[in-house]
Write a protein that binds this DNA or RNA. Structure first.
Lengths: 196, 196
DNA sequence: GAAGGTTGTTATTGGTTGATTACTTAAACA
DNA sequence: TGTTTAAGTAATCAACCAATAACAACCTTC
C-alpha cells in the first residue's frame, strides 16, 4: 500500500547509525551542542526522538561520536591530499582539501562547536585530542614546519568562522572581500561548495 | 548586625547592569549561549535569577548586549594600539593588544560563541556586523592590506580556539608548541594572561 | 517621619527536553 | 507458516529553565 508515504524503510542498525550521525552533524553544526535537540536530529534523520537516544545512549555520547567522525573526515581528506602529489606545494593541496570539506554539510561547523566546548568535562578532551591530531598530521605527515602548520590551522579557523557567520552570502562588499581572502581567491567556488 | 554575611550591597541600576554584563560574559564564554543559564549568570553576579532576566528583558537581549560590548572592547583595544605608535609595525601592536584581551576574562571566549551562531536569526546579524566592524577597523584604520587583515583575523581565530580548548594548560608538548606559535612565541605570557 | 520610587527577592508556572518504558511491526529463519 | 529477533514508535516522566508576578527592604526627600 502506501500511496504517497514512502514506505517506512527499515534499515540495519549499522546503516541507521550512519544516517543518524549524518543528520546529527548537520543539526549540531547549525545549533551547537546545547542548542540542538535530539528531536530536531530525529526529524532530520526521519525517525523518532526516542530511537535517536536509544541508539547512542545519550545526546552527549552522540555528540562525541559526531566529533570523532568529523576529525576522522578531516584526517582522511588531508592524508589523501598529502598522497596525491600533483606538483603543487603540500599546503596548497591541504588548503584545497579543507575547502572541499565545506560541501560535506556540517562537518566544519560541527568542528567549530566542538572546539568551543573545551571547558566541558566530557567533550573538552575529545576536542583537544582531535585538534592536536590534526596539528600533528599537518606537521609530521605533511612535513610543515611548526610555524607553517600553525598558520595553516589559523586559516582553517578563519574559514570556519566565516562559514558559521554566513558571510559568504552577504551583500556587503567588505564581507565578500574578506571571504575571498579567506578562501584563497575563489569566492565563486566557496559559495558553490557552501550552497551544496 | 550581619556578623558574617557581607551586607547585601545595593547598587545603582547602571552599576548593576555592568556587573551582570561582566558575569554574563564569563558564563557565556564558558558554556555558550544555549548552554549557559540565567541562573548561573545570576549566581556569578551574586544576585537572583529573576533580577537578571528583568534587568535585560530576556536572555537573548542580554547575550546581544554582551556581544556588542565584546566587540566594543576589541575596537577600543585596537584603536588604542593604532594610536600608540612605538615604532613597531602596526600588526605587531594589534597582535599584542589582542593577546592582552585574554586577561579580560571571557571576552574572547564569548566572541567565539557569538561567531558560531551565525545561523540564529537574532544573534547572527550582530555577529556578522561585529566581525565586519573589526575587519574594517584593521583594514582601514590600521591600514592593513586585505590579505594582511585577513591573516591577522585568522591568527586571532586560532588564538580563540586554542584558548577555548585550554591547550595552554595542557601537558602535551605538541600542544605547547602550537600555543607558542599561536601567541607569537611568548608562551609564558599567554599562560599568565589566561590564568589572570 | 511618612511617601514614593528604586533595588532586589521568593514563589510559581508553562514550556522544553533528554531519557525510560512498554508496546508494535517488519524481516529472517526454521 | 509460525516463531524468533531486530527495528522502531507512542506515551510518559522528571528535571530544568526562562519568564512573570507579587511582595519586601532600602533610600531619598520633603
Amino acid at each position: 500500500m502506501s500511496t504517497m508515504e514512502t514506505t517506512r524503510q527499515r534499515l540495519p542498525a549499522a546503516e541507521r547509525r550512519e544516517s543518524i550521525l549524518a543528520a546529527a552533524t548537520v543539526v549540531f553544526g547549525e545549533r551547537g551542542y546545547a542548542g540542538a535537540t535530539t528531536d530536531q536530529i530525529a526529524t532530520a534523520a526521519g525517525i523518532s526522538q526516542a530511537y535517536v537516544v536509544r541508539t547512542f545512549g545519550s545526546k552527549e555520547t552522540l555528540f562525541v561520536e559526531v566529533a570523532r567522525r568529523a576529525v576522522g573526515r578531516i584526517e582522511a581528506a588531508f592524508r589523501s591530499a598529502i598522497e596525491a602529489d600533483d606538483g603543487r606545494p603540500v599546503d596548497q593541496r591541504l588548503g584545497q582539501a579543507y575547502l572541499e570539506l565545506i560541501a560535506d554539510r556540517g562537518i566544519l561547523l560541527a568542528l567549530l562547536h566542538i572546539f568551543s566546548l573545551g571547558n566541558d568535562p566530557a567533550i573538552g578532551p575529545v576536542g583537544r585530542e582531535g585538534f592536536l591530531t590534526i596539528y600533528r598530521l599537518v606537521r609530521d605527515e605533511a612535513g610543515l614546519a611548526p610555524e607553517d602548520a600553525s598558520h595553516f590551522l589559523a586559516e582553517g579557523m578563519l574559514i570556519n568562522t566565516v562559514l558559521a557567520l554566513q558571510l559568504h552570502d552577504c551583500d556587503d562588499p567588505d564581507a565578500l572581500e574578506l571571504v575571498t581572502q579567506a578562501c584563497g581567491g575563489d569566492l565563486v567556488r566557496f559559495r558553490a561548495l557552501a550552497a551544496g
